[in-house]
Design a binder for these strands. Structure first.
Lengths: 224, 224
DNA sequence: GCTCTTCAGCTTGTAAACAACACTTACTGT
DNA sequence: ACAGTAAGTGTTGTTTACAAGCTGAAGAGC
């Protein structure tokens, strides 16, 4: 099935926003985007409205659309919600996840298998996928969807984190431990490990100031 | 500021769906709604797209829109997420909620004050407001927003619950107790009480079968 | 020089016509 | 009688044109 123009505009625009190709706070107009994508304003409007309900942009009536800027405070709040949900998710996963799925996930985060990986972007994508995999493993699709939504909002900081080699190895070990605990159906410890694991990222997020963030965005734009 | 047609259509359409004036599963067309509201298809489309991203309806490309039918399984999952989030919310409220706000809330659910209330619809609205008030009291707006979204999806069952007088009194007492625990900053007990309180609703929800649900909807339509 | 008004321009909001596609139905060939 | 096909109908998807409203600058009045 061929995707509709509106769908295409939505996806590419969202990608641009997430990748900072469009700077947070920037004013964008329907005509401008329509020009870029070589379509009329209608599918653009549909895409923008969807992005607004998802919280990526703000539409000011008769004035224009603005890419929602990064709000440090709300990001920390997203992390609090995320911790709550993922702690529950990993508990449920202890009951519902099949052994094969756990083994596959654990193998993926075996330290040896990752030793050679050097692409940090790839690591970050897979890190997010790990958490979603557990959320799906919980058997609660609603929960998984909410976590996906949260990821859309905190991905900004997630991608701007500057992990060194040591941090990557730590992540591997923590992921592996969590898998092990799920396999042992050890709910209490699994919850504790997951909470601690995410709280580390939250601490990093808290330490990032707005000015640091803006510099990092610029760097990211140059690199990308 | 005068509301836009799209906004008006959105609000009224949403109300109709929630109130079962439009039966779940019904196929609706843009032209039909446009006719009803005496506007063109454009604002109707905007409203429908928004309702879709919010999960109230499903748009099948080139075929039509369908009011999302009630899925018992996913409602139970929504309840699981709700329990997790509200348990955290009430804990946070123990730290962040002002004494005045707690007192006001507790007074509102004083058993004596409600003894005379007989309008069940009113009770249900206030019941929902109680939980949102605590979510707001948590100081985490993101969390409150997610709970609002969850309420949009489980309100169907919430409104169909058939509380007798006894159930209303129980609810009063439970709400009052929860307020008391928040006031005492007793996080552990507050979490426990809230979890138990919501789980009762979930049990009710689980016991409702699809056929019961459909009958209840019909009854609701006749009454409304 | 200062303030208020007016107007031009850009923006989103809405309407109406047209295009593309899916489902249904009737027809045709075998 | 049946299968395949083609036309017809109804739906969403897209385009274009127009309406309504906000913003800022230029100009009139004091």
């Amino acid at each position: 099935m061929a995707k509709s123009s509106a769908q295409l505009v939505y996806e590419q625009l969202k990608k641009k926003i997430i990748d900072f190709e469009i700077y947070p706070g920037t004013r964008i107009t329907e005509s401008e985007i329509a020009e870029d994508f070589q379509v009329s304003r209608t599918p653009v409007r549909a895409a923008l409205q969807r992005l607004e309900t998802e919280g990526q942009i703000t539409i000011m009536p008769k004035q224009g659309c603005f890419v929602r800027s990064v709000d440090i405070e709300s990001i920390s709040q997203y992390y609090d919600v995320r911790i709550t949900l993922e702690a529950t998710a990993v508990e449920l996963a202890c009951d519902h996840m099949s052994d094969e799925d756990i083994d596959a996930l654990q193998e993926e985060w075996n330290r040896e298998n990752l030793e050679n990986e050097i692409d940090m972007e790839e690591i970050k994508v897979r890190e997010e996928a790990f958490h979603i995999a557990i959320a799906i493993g919980s058997g609660n699709n609603i929960l998984a969807n909410y976590l996906r939504d949260i990821n859309n909002h905190i991905r900004i900081l997630r991608r701007l984190g500057f992990p060194d080699r040591q941090a990557v190895i730590e992540t591997c070990d923590e992921h592996s431990s969590i898998c092990q605990l799920i396999r042992e159906h050890n709910k209490t410890q699994a919850r504790r490990a997951m909470t601690k694991h995410i709280r580390k990222s939250q601490e990093l997020a808290r330490s990032v100031t707005l000015s640091q963030l803006q510099q990092a965005i610029k760097r990211h734009q140059v690199v990308g």
